[in-house]
């Protein structure tokens, strides 16, 4: 759906925010773009949406160049920017209708009613934007982005400042949008959000894409599983019969790390071996790394 080829972005102050970015976003997927503050996520989104120009490289949306065919490509795209920017004196209804008009669509009050209801904004439709709370404004911006029925939706930290319950609602809505075939690109600092929603994950750091991977594969590939045994009696050293296992010995516990899921066989062998060695343990804890840990590890590399 979106192809990004050799994109570089150097701002006027000579700061290079994007470095040779190359990747594709597939039709109908939810793509999560992760990265620390200042990594270039917003810059990349702005560039695709036409808010800033690439210094070099090209982007196509649905096979069309975003500069040459901006009319077609922009019609396909809806954007919820990171910052809350609203015209304070406008009403919710007017501002959403305005957005639809800007994108060249004929008025469709029924459709706008539907999205306002979905976003729990219907009872606020005649309120001026300055009278809304931050989370409501965020939802108004989502309504604006959806007003022209886009095929691709960019959500730049859509759930920042939205309470937990509404966040869950929003995730649900995003999934429903995906059901209707909309391609969704989101950035977030809540890793659980990416874990929950994304089909694929991209990690960007200092303007470079350092990884693009299907979320499930990534979790499998990168995740570490550990079994921590709290020992009944302290061990002075790891017995030589256990030297094949990845073990760490601390004061009162033994930690066994085993990488991927295929290795389940090793787990039962390991416990047999323990029995043979007469190692007693009083408790077992298991730990599996989350996307967050994977992410931190990647970025710190």
């Amino acid at each position: 759906m979106i192809t990004i080829s050799n994109v570089n972005k150097i701002y006027d102050n000579k700061f290079q925010a994007l470095k040779e970015v190359n990747f594709e976003i597939q039709k109908g997927e939810i793509f999560a773009l992760l990265g620390p503050n200042g990594a270039g996520k917003t810059t990349l989104i702005k560039l695709i949406c036409g808010l800033t120009n690439a210094t070099s490289g090209a982007v196509t949306v649905d096979g069309l160049d975003i500069v040459k065919n901006f009319r077609q490509t922009r019609k396909l795209i809806g954007l919820v920017p990171q910052e809350l920017t609203t015209s304070p004196f406008e009403t919710v209804w007017n501002t959403v209708s305005f957005s639809r008009g800007l994108f060249g669509k004929a008025p469709n009050p029924g459709y706008i009613e539907k999205i306002l209801k979905q976003l729990s904004l219907w009872d606020k439709k005649d309120n001026k934007l300055m009278t809304l709370s931050g989370g409501m404004k965020r939802r108004v911006m989502i309504a604006k982005a959806l007003s022209h029925e886009p095929r691709v939706l960019f959500l730049d930290e859509p759930t920042a400042g939205v309470d937990v319950e509404l966040r869950k609602d929003m995730w649900q809505q995003v999934r429903e949008l995906k059901e209707t075939g909309v391609t969704i690109i989101l950035t977030t600092h809540y890793i659980e959000e990416a874990e929950e929603m994304a089909d694929r994950v991209g990690v960007i750091s200092s303007g470079k894409i350092i990884l693009i991977e299907e979320k499930n594969k990534l979790m499998k590939k990168m995740s570490k599983k550990e079994i921590k045994l709290v020992l009944g009696k302290p061990l002075s050293a790891i017995p030589s019969s256990l030297s094949n296992y990845d073990l760490k010995l601390t004061d009162n516990s033994l930690i066994y790390s085993y990488g991927d899921a295929n290795n389940t066989h090793g787990v039962s062998d390991f416990f047999e071996q323990l029995k043979k060695e007469n190692i007693e343990y009083t408790d077992i804890k298991t730990h599996e790394s989350s996307l967050e840990e994977i992410f931190v590890e990647l970025v710190n590399k």
Partner: peptide, 17 residues
Amino acid sequence: FPKFSGTIYEVLSAPLS
């Protein structure tokens, strides 16, 4: 005003020359 408040983003991202 839109430039100052940031709402201009929408006009810039719209299919308008």
